[in-house]
Write a protein that binds this DNA or RNA. Structure first.
Lengths: 100, 100
DNA sequence: TAAAGTACTTTGAAATTCAAAGTTAATGTG
DNA sequence: CACATTAACTTTGAATTTCAAAGTACTTTA
């Protein structure tokens, strides 16, 4: 019988990507700076983790100008939401097992 | 306000270490081969992840002979249990947030 | 014209993880 | 006794991931 860890998704292995996704599960269109401040990461680092999630088509991007400033926002795609839900279910099982 | 990911413990970032700990939370003294088979990893890889947890004093080791064969078992220390519980609580919050 | 803000990209280094092979000590087999 | 085998590692070197720091493009504000 295989252990639950085999059902965890590598795309969400990193805490920052976990954080990005957990924010995007409950908020539609969150912008770069909000993510940056909420997760307390440098912009370069955030950008690279976002890029990784984008590459898997787990999130989509919207670029526009707000108050004459560039503003980039992100939201989870349905593929992203589904993949993340699966990941959370695996985590939940692991959690429940660990608590008896 | 800081995001919950800042409360995740880096020692448990890796899925294999997460698996080891989740097994040791509910089983006292689990041996090397059981861990190896349950988590489906090579012995070298398992040994190195165990070593990392040992270094943090999150688990302790017992070596003896069973049926004339060497048998090494592990269990979580109370420090390990506490640290893992904190980690699980952070994960749980993240999980609940992501599910609304 | 110069400075500042946004959202990156690039670079190179540090850290982590990995497979594969080698090791040690004890036991089992011929 | 010689040799193979098993358990549990350790070592090595390479691949992968992650990081900080610096650089960039575009636009707005002073």
């Amino acid at each position: 019988m295989k252990h639950i860890i085999t059902q965890l998704n590598q795309a969400f292995d990193h805490r920052i990507r976990l954080g990005i996704m957990s924010i995007l599960m409950v908020n539609d269109w969150v912008d770069f700076n909000t993510l940056k401040e909420t997760l307390d990461v440098t912009d370069g680092r955030l950008a690279s983790h976002i890029k990784a999630l984008e590459k898997d088509d787990y999130l989509e991007v919207r670029k526009r100008f707000v108050k004459r400033k560039p503003n980039t926002s992100y939201r989870a795609t349905s593929a992203g939401r589904n993949a993340f839900k699966d990941h959370l279910n695996a985590l939940e099982q692991l959690l429940n097992n660990a608590k008896e």
